[in-house]
Amino acid sequence: MGPDDFRTFEEAYSVAANASGLRLGVREGAAYTDAEVLIAAGWSRARVGGVLLRLRSECDAVGLRNPPARTLPHLRTLPEVRAHLIAQAHRWRMDPAEAIATAVLAWWLQPVCAACQGRRFERAGGTARLSSRGCKPCGATGLSRVPHGEPGRRIARYIDDCVQGAQRSIAHRLRAR
């Protein structure tokens, strides 16, 4: 299972979480239905990763993925995820734990570089076109830097590990159906 499979499962989960009509598949070898993806997620042992996936799907539902502004609206699972990340930062003796966890969570939900809006290149002077010069603030990656240096990167790796654990668990459950 490669990295593309994980992205596919996250997209499938987001679509399933925001679907208005759910049906279970009954044919052997049929493609996974939205309902099956949600059932597999519910059975997943990776609780924190599952909540993070749910938070991302809520962001998708309100169109929050990669907007220019870095404000977070009221999302149902946001307080639970934020509290868990703050507790983890406290366990790792990070100071200030609340500021680090909150900033990294906001970055994880909206990691796009504000200077180039994720396009990786600078704008050509006075036009709407992009130049051939890479964006300097993000190093032409299209992504902003993780806030708070090494402590922030540790929290970001923890978030990614939790999400990957949930995706692996969902994939395992879907294959076992």
Results as ranks from 00 to 15, higher is better:
Met1Phe: 13
Pro3Asp: 13
Asp4Ile: 09
Asp5Glu: 08
Asp5Asn: 09
Asp5Thr: 12
Arg7Trp: 09
Glu10Cys: 10
Tyr13Phe: 15
Tyr13Asn: 01
Tyr13Ile: 04
Val15Gly: 11
Ala16Gln: 05
Ala17Thr: 09
Ala17Gly: 11
Asn18His: 14
Ala19His: 06
Ser20Asn: 12
Gly21Glu: 09
Gly21Val: 11
Leu22Thr: 12
Arg27Cys: 06
Arg27Glu: 14
Ala30Glu: 07
Ala30Tyr: 07
Ala35Thr: 08
Glu36Trp: 00
Val37Arg: 01
Ile39Ser: 04
Gly42Ala: 12
Val48Asn: 13
Val51Arg: 11
Arg54Glu: 15
Leu55His: 04
Ser57Tyr: 05
Glu58Leu: 08
Asp60Asn: 12
Ala61Leu: 14
Val62Ser: 04
Pro67Arg: 09
Arg70Ile: 10
Pro73Met: 05
His74Leu: 11
His74Ala: 12
Leu75Tyr: 07
Pro79Thr: 13
Ala83Phe: 12
Leu85Val: 06
Ile86Asn: 00
Ile86Leu: 01
Trp92Cys: 10
Trp92Asp: 15
Trp92Ile: 09
Arg93His: 14
Met94Ala: 05
Glu98Gln: 09
Ile100Gln: 02
Ala103Gly: 07
Ala106His: 10
Trp107Arg: 00
Leu109Asn: 05
Leu109Val: 10
Pro111Gln: 00
Val112Trp: 05
Cys113Ile: 01
Arg119Asp: 10
Arg120Glu: 05
Phe121Asp: 07
Arg123Val: 07
Thr127His: 05
Gly134Tyr: 02
Gly134Phe: 02
Thr141Asp: 07
Ser144Phe: 08
Arg145Phe: 03
Gly149Glu: 06
Glu150Lys: 12
Tyr158Ile: 03
Tyr158Asn: 01
Cys162Asp: 06
Val163Phe: 01
Gln164Leu: 13
Ala171Gln: 13
Ala171Leu: 15
His172Asp: 14
Arg173Leu: 15
Arg173Ile: 11
Leu174His: 10
